[in-house]
Simulated assay, not measured.
Amino acid sequence: MKNIKSKPKHKKNRKSYEDLKRTISLERKLLQILLDNIPDAIYFKDDKNRIIRVNRFYAEGFKLPIEDIIGKTDFDFFPKDQAQRMFEDDTYVLKTGKPIIGKIERTLLPNGTYNCVTTTKIPIKNKKGRVIGTLGVTRDITAYDNTERTNLEMIMNSLKVLDKILETKDPYTFGHTRRVSLIAERIAKELGWEKNRILELKMSAELHDIGKILIPLEILNKPGKLSDLEYKMVQEHVQQSYNMLKPYSFPSQLPETIYQHHERLNGKGYPRGLLSDKILPEAKILAICDVLEAMISHRPYRQALGMDITLKELKENVGSKYDKDIVDVVLKMISENNNKPFWLNS
């Protein structure tokens, strides 16, 4: 029987190695084809936040060949402050191993315009579970953002129409709600609130007295003291406002904020006698703005009380009626404006 000669071992290993190389090369090509056909910017970064791989959509956004992007960082393509925020997000993912999902931000394009995007960043881990880089996916939602802005403009225009109706019936309430909105906006900005939350607060301020449209004008503008029954009718504007707004698709807390704007920290407000921990931060701001503007302004039933008496009311009732942090912000802004109403400058 003849011996069958087997192939040399090194030739088998070489063939296996070549097969493995071809398989890896094919998988890399397939991955790149997949990435290049996704209409989102996709990018991989190493543990130093350097770009190590991008898809075609990402490169086309900068009008650069891919090889001119690899090895660089966001600081090479974006304004410094914008790149710094991106760097901080990447570093957060690297250090914590936690993803950032669906962050909405505005980015400056090479042509000098801004677009609105949503960005997700996830950690890339090795076999031992150590984070060695990040994968980012950024989607352009500018068209959606523009639609939402158009819808928002429609809402705001509707509010202006409503303001005009209120002005026709009760010019005092109209001016009051507008000024309360300005005060609330300034306070929220000073507290560092983000813009969408500030916008919701402004809308709450614009609508907080909408229920007064159902109160007889002779009661709203009555000179002198109201009877107990009349005063109760005025108080009911809070419930009326809530009932009018609750059925519609306003931001989630807007009707509740308005419902609470006459509540006080000590539970002696109305209509529900809520204590501090049950009152929304937005309602705490609105309560102070409402009192501040009302006291300093002329009303049908009395002259303006002036800044000194108004500040005394706030200072003497900090912690019992009014939130200390908010009052401190108000006092600071009034002091910086030479003890004059800062909102009149807006």
Rank of each mutant, 00 (worst) to 15 (best):
I198Y: 08
G269R: 07
T142K: 04
K169D: 12
E230T: 11
T73K: 01
I198A: 05
L159V: 15
M154H: 07
I51M: 13
R28M: 09
I183A: 13
K15C: 04
S346P: 01
K315D: 06
D228T: 14
W343F: 04
H208R: 01
R186N: 11
S297R: 09
G192L: 14
G97T: 10
P65S: 06
K45M: 09
T91I: 04
S346T: 00
K332W: 01
D170M: 11
N317T: 00
H298D: 13
G267I: 02
K121R: 10
F62N: 04
N13L: 11
L191R: 00
I334M: 11
E200N: 13
A83M: 01
G306F: 08
M295H: 09
I69Y: 00
L201N: 11
N49Q: 14
N221L: 13
E263D: 10
F87Q: 06
E200K: 12
Q303S: 15
T118H: 05
K340Q: 15
M156K: 14
G319Q: 12
K160I: 13
M295I: 02
N49K: 15
P123K: 05
F174Q: 06
L191I: 05
T113M: 14
L30I: 07
A41I: 03
K232Y: 08
N221K: 13
V137Y: 05
D308C: 02
K45F: 05
K160Q: 15
T96V: 10
V117H: 12
S6A: 15
Y270G: 11
A294S: 15
M156Y: 05
K125Q: 03
A287S: 14
P251F: 00
I187P: 03
Q239C: 08
K315I: 09
A294Q: 08
K225G: 06
E167R: 07
R178V: 11
P8Y: 12
P271A: 14
T118P: 08
L201Y: 07
W343A: 07
I70T: 00
I187K: 02
Y58T: 05
L286A: 14
P123Y: 07
T118N: 04
V93Q: 08
R302E: 05
G269S: 09
S252C: 00
G319I: 10
R53A: 08
D46H: 03
V137C: 09
D308F: 01
K121H: 04
S249L: 14
N339V: 00
A83K: 09
L217I: 01
P39H: 07
A83C: 12
L275S: 09
I42K: 03
D145G: 00
K5T: 13
I51R: 13
Y231S: 15
K121V: 15
Q260V: 10
K63T: 07
F75M: 00
P216C: 03
P247K: 14
G102R: 08
K9Y: 11
D328E: 05
L64Y: 12
I38S: 06
V137G: 06
K48V: 07
R178M: 11
A184T: 15
K21C: 04
G129S: 03
S227R: 03
M333A: 04
E153G: 12
K225L: 03
R299K: 15
K21P: 00
N126F: 00
R53E: 05
C116F: 09
M156T: 02
L331M: 08
D163N: 14
A59W: 02
N157L: 01
P281A: 12
R85L: 12
Q260H: 09
Y114L: 10
L229H: 13
